[in-house]
């Protein structure tokens, strides 16, 4: 009756008989989503393999954030199927939680918990979801904090850190859950220019270690160096997807060319 957290996946996806490829970690078929009457996602098909790094770009309002938020069910979809690591997204709460455990997410606004220390931010989910011992969780958290290079801030509160540091903590917080996939929702858009690099460096490092990543970003340099595939979205649909070299040097669609012209030449 009283439910503050909107559980958006209460709508059961229409049953579709599609064979899911075993090799793809994320498998999205025929995904459609409406905000009221507005058709935000149109017939999206997208498969992401284990270890693949995919960058999604596109003008604002093209539905790219909505798409990745559908994957861990922060947004409900009306048609189509989403399968993550063999688990199909349904309206079942346990099901949603299973998927969320496997999918890490980093937000544009960091969304660190201001009432908890950095360390507590990182150990919250391992303790309460993974049911790890506190000592154990703290040990793991410190390892990840070292990898994002802020172990000395562990006992401070988020408000005492810079934006770049906060975002690195947010990445560490997700990694502590040992996810199969990491979703990045414009992770550098809210940062001052001088802090973007420190966050991107952490993401590049993560990519090198073989993490499966799906990343919404405007950082085209990052896309070029890290991505296996770049996807361009506009008006709620996937217009073009290609390896970065091909995508940047030889875009096929006129829209993509326009967009790249705007992003690269500013």
């Amino acid at each position: 009756m009283i439910d503050y957290l909107d559980e958006p996946c209460l709508q059961k996806p229409l049953s579709q008989t599609l064979e899911q490829k075993a090799s793809s970690l994320i498998d999205i078929r025929g995904l459609n989503k409406w905000y009221g009457q507005f058709h935000v996602l149109r017939d999206i098909d997208l498969q992401i393999h284990k270890g693949e790094k995919v960058v999604i770009c596109g003008p604002s309002g093209s539905g790219k954030s909505t798409l990745i938020r559908c994957i861990n069910c922060l947004e409900e979809h009306q048609q189509g199927s989403i399968v993550v690591d063999g688990t199909r997204l349904t309206n079942d709460l346990d099901n949603i939680e299973t998927i969320r455990r496997e999918v890490g997410m980093v937000f544009q606004q960091f969304n660190l918990f201001p009432h908890l220390t950095i360390l507590e931010n990182c150990t919250l989910a391992p303790i309460w979801v993974r049911k790890q011992a506190k000592k154990e969780a703290e040990k793991v958290a410190m390892e990840y904090l070292e990898r994002v290079q802020i172990p000395d801030q562990a006992h401070k509160y988020p408000g005492q850190l810079s934006g770049g540091q906060q975002q690195r903590v947010a990445i560490a917080r997700s990694l502590c859950m040992n996810p199969e996939v990491m979703l990045f929702d414009e992770p550098t858009s809210a940062l001052d220019p001088e802090m973007i690099k420190e966050v991107l460096d952490v993401m590049i490092e993560l990519a090198r270690e073989g993490m499966t990543m799906l990343c919404v970003t405007h950082e085209m340099g990052f896309a070029r160096t890290v991505a296996d595939r770049v996807i361009f979205m506009d008006e709620g649909q996937i217009i073009e997807q290609a390896p970065p070299a091909e995508f940047f040097d030889n875009p096929r669609s006129e829209r993509t060319r326009q967009f790249l012209g705007q992003v690269l030449n500013h």
Binding site: Y4, E7, R100, M105, L124, W128, A170
Partner: peptide, 22 residues
């Protein structure tokens, strides 16, 4: 902020825990 609930949910916390912990 809504983002707090989303972040907690994205970490896999159950709705009840999202309320009591975050």
């Amino acid at each position: 902020p809504k983002g707090q609930k989303e972040a907690a949910a994205a970490l896999g916390l159950k709705p009840g825990k999202v309320m009591t912990l975050v």
